[in-house]
Amino acid sequence: MGRRRAWLVIAAPAVVLFLAFWLLPMAKLAGIGAATPQGMDASAYWLVVTQPRYWQSLINTVALSLGATLATLVIALPVSRFLARHPDFPGRRVLMSLLLFPLAFPGVVVGFLVILATGRQGVLNTLSKALSGDPMVLAYGMAGLFIGYLYFLLPRTIGVLMTAVEGIDKHWLEAAQTLGASPWRRFVDIELPALTGALTAAGAMCFATAMGAFGTVFTLGTRIDVLPITIYDEFTNYANLPVAAALSVVLGLATWAVLYVANSLAARTARGN
C-alpha cells in the first residue's frame, strides 16, 4: 500500500487546478451572493427568494426544463428500444451516426437551427402559410426554447437508454411471455421496472442540462425569462453582481443536487437488481 501511495503526487496538478480555478472562485462567488446590492436592504440571497421577478424566472426555468425532460424521455424510449432490439436493421449505423452527430452542437448553433426551422423565415412558417394562410412562428418564445431543448436532449438520452435496453435480460421478457403476458404487460411489468434506474439518471441529466442551458436562449432572444438569461442580464446590463452571484449559486446547487440524488438512486436500483 505504501508503494502505491507514492503515486498520489501525480494527481496534484489536477487537484491544484480545480482548487485554484473552480472551488475557491466558487466559494468567493457564494460570498458575493451574501452581500447587499446597492440601494437594497437585504442580502442578494434574500432578494432572490423574495422578489417575484427572480422566483418567477426560477419557476419558468424549472417548468420548462421539467416539460422538456419528460417529452425527451417519452420520445427517446421507443427510439432506443427500436435501435437496441434491431441490431441487424439495414442502415442502423447511419441512423445512429445521424442521431449522435448533434451531441457536438453547442447551444448557440441549436438556437440557430430552431430559427431556421420555426422562425419567421422558417420552414414551419412557410408550410403553415401555404396550407392554412396563417403564419406560425415558434422560435422566439418559450415554444422555440422547448424545441431547442428537445433538440439537444434527445441525442444525449437515446445513447444512455439504448445501453440500458440492451442490458435487459431477454429471458425475463420471454419468461413473462410464456407465463401469458401480452406485449403491453411485458413492457409495463418487466421492461419499465428494469429501466427505472436508467430513466431516472437520464431524466436528471436532461433536467440539469436544460436548467443551465444558456447558448440556445441567447440565440433565440434575450427576452425569454429563464434563469440563465436573468443571471446574464443582472451581470452585464445592471452590473448587479451580488444578485447574479446569488442566482448562479442557487442554480448551480439545484442542478448539482438533482444530478447527485438521481445518480445515487440509479446506482441503488442497479445494485438492487
Partner: peptide
Amino acid sequence: VPGLATALA
C-alpha cells in the same frame, strides 16, 4: 454546474 456560474466565479 452551469457554465455561466463557473464563468462568473
